[in-house]
Design a protein around this nucleic acid. Structure first.
Lengths: 219, 219
DNA sequence: CGTACGATTGATCCTGATCAAAGTAAGTGG
DNA sequence: CCACTTACTTTGATCAGGATCAATCGTACG
């Protein structure tokens, strides 16, 4: 739950090219960001809508005293940074080196006006993300540490291309801030799940789901 | 965090009339529900979109073992029950007796196809609700009991028509399930805020904000 | 090889949960 | 209208899960 300056500069701040598709097919400028670089900050003008082309992004909010909350992770193909108001309500940071497609907000609106299907998709994606946020609220609101970590692993497994083996791009600190726990508790809980035979941890960022039933019953 | 059968039947299950406006101006059938009546259940077909005409609604999710989470409260004029999939992911219940306008999902889609402004509004409301959910995740993920209760009171004050005096429609149990606390902790925290002079509690459902600065610094 | 960061493990403390009881308010039926 | 019931709220005592403080370990990197 601690938050310190973990940010470094983007390793290529220059827009590289024009992507074939932004949010569900919108064109936009591609920028590369280095691990831990800030893509946008809390309070920044929300003039763009973003999409992950490669890598992983986290949305974070920081309380005045430094406590950090990660609201969501975004993987390749997912969009983020869409706001109801004029400014961003969270910061976005690169969890790993990544390529991000930025599309001007206005371009999104313009296209939505002329394209019903797109407009519907836009809405659907917002509603889907809302459902995800509600699910996460359930985890934060009433689950134990063991349940939270198990839920997290199952969520990652579901969103991962390779079933059964997770290559977690994020640190224990990120997981902790996502689950409303401390890094120590996350670590201890993973150890506990290993001892139960639910998972196997060949390297700290790689987790093999050994027994899903056991994981699911822990969640 | 306990969940027991708190539901009774709607006191008038018959659609009463056709409302002038449903979601942002959509027509729909009005139904009255008694306090604690279920409007729809988790898993039910999401064929309608709802709007509160009068009263207060809560969206709840229940874990298998009975723990209950309230995801959001909805007051007069607010809509709820919009889902990405075919079924509802939460239950909706009447916190107080209330009148609800139900609009067929299809009617919403149809109108969105022909009316850009409406479509945009629909999207905006989803994104705004998402921002609210994110805010709440922050509360659930990193705040103390005192901070949660203070945040809650400030949120209610912001959404209340009368500034300074809150007429809470929901019980302490509802507040607890919304904040991820127990009813005892909520009660104790309210007492604590009273002792600090931040609030005044003439009756248990009425709370006067005496010192906002003190409340805000607690949040 | 040595440094630095991330992860794990250990010991102790504290906040909020749990268990328990009493107080309060609102209905209900006589 | 009042006694009784029932639901809701408050307060108290104790307990436990996870936070905090602290140290060590492992691994990637310069």
């Amino acid at each position: 739950m601690t938050a310190s300056a973990r940010l470094t500069a983007p390793f290529s701040p220059v827009p590289a090219a024009v992507a074939a598709n932004g949010l569900a097919g919108l064109p936009g400028a591609v920028t590369k960001y280095a691990r831990n670089a800030e893509i946008f900050g809390e309070g920044d003008e929300a003039d763009f809508v973003y999409r992950v082309r490669s890598g992983t992004v986290r949305l974070t909010r920081i309380l005045p005293d430094g406590r950090r909350m990660i609201g969501s992770f975004h993987f390749a193909g997912e969009s983020f940074g869409i706001e109801p108001g004029a400014t961003h309500s969270s910061s976005a940071e690169a969890v790993t080196d990544c390529e991000i497609v930025a599309t001007p907000r206005n371009a999104v609106f313009r296209r939505a006006e002329n394209d019903h299907a797109f407009s519907h998709e836009l809405w659907q994606s917002a509603v889907a993300e809302l459902a995800g946020a509600r699910q996460h609220m359930l985890v934060l609101g009433c689950q134990s540490a063991l349940e939270r970590v198990a839920s997290f692993l199952l969520e990652m497994a579901e969103r991962s291309p390779v079933a059964g083996v997770l290559s977690l791009p994020m640190s224990r600190q990120d997981i902790a801030d996502y689950l409303g726990l401390t890094i120590e508790t996350v670590s201890r809980t993973i150890t506990q799940l290993t001892e139960r035979g639910a998972i196997e941890v060949p390297s700290s960022r790689t987790i093999v789901l050994r027994n899903r039933t056991s994981l699911r019953s822990a969640a």
